[in-house]
Simulated scan of single mutants.
Amino acid sequence: MKMNFSQTKDERLLAFYENIRRQVDLDTRAGGRYRFAGEGVKQYAERLREEIDRRQLRFIPIDWPR
């Protein structure tokens, strides 16, 4: 599924990504592997990251559990 973020403001794009990063961090601290952030969330975050990279915005990458 192709997501279109072309009309999304930079700040919103970064906020969406940061919310997922925090969610993954909480999952990791809770000891669960993708307890709340499953594969669909990971794919969504990847699309956000691609757009963030395209716009050359600064962000903290998500540290996905292995």
Score class of each variant (00 low, 15 high):
residue 59 F to L: 05
residue 17 Y to D: 01
residue 37 A to V: 11
residue 11 E to P: 12
residue 5 F to V: 08
residue 56 Q to W: 04
residue 58 R to I: 15
residue 65 P to K: 13
residue 45 A to R: 13
residue 60 I to F: 06
residue 4 N to F: 12
residue 32 G to Y: 14
residue 40 G to C: 06
residue 63 D to I: 07
residue 62 I to W: 08
residue 11 E to L: 14
residue 59 F to R: 08
residue 61 P to R: 01
residue 43 Q to N: 11
residue 33 R to Q: 13
residue 45 A to F: 10
residue 1 M to C: 02
residue 56 Q to S: 07
residue 8 T to M: 11
residue 66 R to G: 08
residue 39 E to Q: 13
residue 63 D to H: 07
residue 25 D to A: 10
residue 19 N to I: 15
residue 9 K to I: 07
residue 51 E to I: 07
residue 56 Q to D: 10
residue 43 Q to S: 10
residue 66 R to S: 11
residue 53 D to S: 14
residue 10 D to K: 00
residue 43 Q to H: 10
residue 2 K to A: 01
residue 28 T to H: 11
residue 63 D to N: 07
residue 65 P to T: 15
residue 37 A to S: 09
residue 27 D to R: 00
residue 16 F to A: 15
residue 43 Q to E: 12
residue 8 T to A: 06
residue 42 K to R: 15
residue 3 M to S: 12
residue 34 Y to A: 14
residue 42 K to E: 09
residue 29 R to A: 08
residue 49 R to I: 00
residue 32 G to V: 10
residue 54 R to M: 11
residue 8 T to S: 04
residue 39 E to G: 09
residue 11 E to I: 14
residue 5 F to M: 07
residue 5 F to K: 03
residue 25 D to Y: 00
residue 49 R to W: 08
residue 27 D to L: 04
residue 6 S to K: 03
residue 56 Q to F: 09
residue 52 I to L: 11
residue 24 V to Y: 04
residue 54 R to G: 03
residue 39 E to I: 14
residue 53 D to L: 15
residue 25 D to F: 00
residue 25 D to W: 00
residue 1 M to A: 05
residue 37 A to D: 01
residue 14 L to K: 04
residue 15 A to W: 05
residue 43 Q to T: 04
residue 2 K to S: 03
residue 26 L to D: 11
residue 52 I to N: 01
residue 52 I to A: 06
residue 59 F to T: 06
residue 42 K to F: 05
residue 54 R to I: 15
residue 46 E to L: 10
residue 41 V to F: 05
residue 11 E to C: 14
residue 53 D to Y: 13
residue 33 R to I: 08
residue 65 P to N: 15
residue 2 K to Q: 13
residue 8 T to H: 09
residue 43 Q to I: 08
residue 46 E to Y: 14
residue 12 R to G: 00
residue 33 R to D: 15
residue 3 M to G: 07
residue 14 L to I: 13
residue 30 A to F: 07
residue 66 R to N: 10
residue 33 R to A: 15
residue 56 Q to L: 08
residue 8 T to D: 02
residue 25 D to C: 06
residue 15 A to R: 06
residue 48 L to Q: 00
residue 27 D to I: 01
residue 33 R to E: 15
residue 44 Y to E: 06
residue 11 E to F: 12
residue 18 E to R: 10
residue 30 A to L: 07
residue 29 R to H: 10
residue 39 E to S: 11
residue 1 M to K: 04
residue 5 F to S: 02
residue 48 L to K: 00
residue 13 L to S: 01
residue 34 Y to S: 10
residue 33 R to Y: 15
residue 10 D to H: 05
residue 27 D to Q: 02
residue 55 R to H: 13
residue 8 T to P: 06
residue 3 M to W: 13
residue 57 L to N: 02
residue 56 Q to E: 12
residue 53 D to G: 13
residue 12 R to I: 07
residue 12 R to W: 03
residue 57 L to H: 01
residue 18 E to A: 13
residue 37 A to P: 01
residue 25 D to T: 04
residue 21 R to N: 09
residue 20 I to V: 10
residue 26 L to A: 11
residue 64 W to K: 02
residue 11 E to S: 14
residue 62 I to C: 11
residue 33 R to W: 15
residue 56 Q to C: 09
residue 66 R to D: 13
residue 45 A to V: 12
residue 49 R to F: 05
residue 23 Q to P: 12
residue 7 Q to V: 14
residue 17 Y to H: 06
residue 16 F to H: 08
residue 19 N to Y: 08
residue 16 F to W: 12
residue 13 L to V: 09
residue 20 I to S: 01
residue 14 L to Y: 03
residue 45 A to M: 13
residue 38 G to F: 15
residue 39 E to C: 10
residue 26 L to P: 03
residue 13 L to Y: 01
residue 40 G to W: 10
